[in-house]
Design a protein around this nucleic acid. Sequence first.
RNA 1: GGACGAUUAGCUCAGUUGGUUAGAGCGUCUCGUUUACACCGAGAAGGCCGUAGGUUCGAAUCCUACAUCGUCCACCA
Length: 734
Amino acid sequence: MTELPKTYDASKVESKIYKRWLDSGYFNPDKLPKDHKDHYTISMPPPNVTGTLHIGHALGATIQDVLIRFARMQGKKTLWLPGTDHAAIATQSKVEKEIYKKEKKTRHDYGREEFLKLVEKFAQESHDTIIEQLKRMGTSCDWSREAYTLDEQRTLAVRTAFKNMYEDGLIYRGSRIVNWDPRLATTVSDDEVEWEERKTPFYYIKYGPFTIGTARPETKFGDKYVVMHPDDKRYKKYKHGDQLPVEWINGKITATVIKDKTVDMEFGTGVMTITPWHDKTDFDIAERHNLDKKQIIDYKGKLLSIAQEFAGIHIKKAHPMIVEKLKEKGLLKKIDENYVNRVAINSRGGELIEPQIKKQWFVNVNAKFKAKNDKLKGIIKGQEITLKDLMKNVVASGQIKITPDRFTKIYYHWIDNLRDWCISRQIWYGHRMPVWYKGKQTYVGIEPPEGDEWKQDPDTLDTWFSSGLWTFSTLGWPNNTSDLKTYHPTNVMETGYDILFFWIARMILMSGYNLSDIPFKDVYMHGLVRDKDRQKMSKSKGNIIDPLGVIDLYGTDALRMALVFSTAAGNDIPLAEEKIKGMKHFANKLWNIARFVLTNTPSVILDATPDDSESNFDSRLRGNNKLTAADKDILQKLKLTIKKVTENFEKFRLHEAAQEIYQFTWHELADKYLEASKEQLKDEKLREPTQTILLHCLIVILKLLHPFMPFVTEEIWSHLNQKDLLIISKWPTP
RNA sequence: GGACGAUUAGCUCAGUUGGUUAGAGCGUCUCGUUUACACCGAGAAGGCCGUAGGUUCGAAUCCUACAUCGUCCACCA
């Protein structure tokens, strides 16, 4: 027996222990002892290389590591595959902001190649920081398989998927209205748009015999269609297709009457004019009735020649000028100053969205393709399905289970409202479209076509396109590797509920199409970490808890335990520093239990207690009819604790598992049995069984606690004369 | 406008097939410096489990309505 130091110093122990794990090779499933069977795989949601890890990452990393360590101790061949995400638009916009702040330069001042070098450097630095942080969290992932969404292997996967989907007619190019960010000069997907309520003046303007309402008079120059509901009695005398002269902003125009059921009769006057180029609703109406579409605003937010005297002026500036002109012409009838409007903002950069019609690439969610095999429940090989059907089917059939259950309904609802997914972005950082043009010809392939005349599409792919492939691209796909055959589908996808649509749904889509299989069997969603007043953590509020900061103060184990301890799946987690501090005390308590047990255990007993000692332990006590009430009580409660902890693990109730073991360790073992044992140890006849029980309890709680608090438990374990590391010891049975 | 979630001790939260005196962390009060631990122990105060009904032998838990807060979704010009 080696003596435990008087106090536990997490900062000194953790790096030493982590190195010991790395040296053992046990993070790599291929290097686990041969008796490890039944694969258990988790793909790590790759953190964005946009800086550093925040507390939300720490939560995810902890939960996944807890699951992985539990599975590993259950004798499973566990693979936790780590990686990082290039996060295209988020990373690029971070660098753009930086160079603008420092040098007042834009990416165009640098040019594509030079700018990309800057982004890559930033991404590399972020990557290094993030990996170091993950290691400090104690994550037991297989670093030999680390992946990046933009590395060579993943590029092959992306191009292969794109090519196949294009050839199957699931990817097409078309002119659609998209969310355009004039500042970043790129499109963003529907899911990336955030809506913000703003009070804006609402103008009632005379339009021929009608009055129309708008918050955006600057878009109205080209409005030559006036739309109303077919059942609106007020406008009965106007027929669909009627033409009438109207005095408009810049003179006389001819307006055409359109009847469409999407018009809300209750709103405003029940009449509106449409701007199909700059409004999604209007675009849909124009499509339905085959109407002309005209661009009013350019891609930088300036008015085009149709605005005549206002041409070249930025819409922000032009707005009051146009209002003034309408007033002069007597067209402005009324202004409602209390109108609350919802404006669209790019959540990845913060600029106002200006809808535009652009040629973009889309994934068609309603086109049919043939299933490659029978792996999807209820779908046979060769059967035709759409991506939409597929995404719904795998969850409805129970092949993928979402925890907590309530997100299932939200997921269905999202699918029902799903439109084609715009996958092209006009930014530079990311996977360049594997598309080349020559005159009117288009070539899609993995390698560029022969010949200099072919020009590659300048756009890049939405970052979620590559993330969607993550569970299988990381295992070597499109090559038919043994990793892919062995570890896919993965067992659990553990992530925050905020990326259910962005990512979970896209992974289901991608593996459904490319493999005709599910990417994972279980989805486990955790909540957002908030501060103790339930506020979102943000830099501006100054309520950020920095994972590394608290690790330095209280130790990784304390942070991990605090994160898992009092939260249910999918619920947000208020985290106060006091909670982490409390868990540091718990680590200290455990340390002192170990010190007490070890100073009272002679080496004879210690040596006679190898890891797999449970049956051994029972036989050693059998025939001993001198067990005291305290002995019997603690052994019974220990059994019960093992049972409950294991059950809670299996049901993803990690917080309850943590609470059970916490309660037992402190308030049963330490408070009661250790106190009782002090007397029993003085009694010669009771001494040996008491020592045996103490040691047995210690061994079991170290195992039960190890998934949550890996460092302190492994450190104590190293003082127990055990053959191998705690990380691969056998999970106890009740 | 639709959907979902939350409402439990002073504060932050657990409490999943309805079942004995409703739990934890932090905080408060009293006592205790016994060689594992003061990062401790013993004990105490503190809860009409949002409101009102209903089902049941029995409800924090199931049902209905309402209130407050929050989140997500949605093409109100």
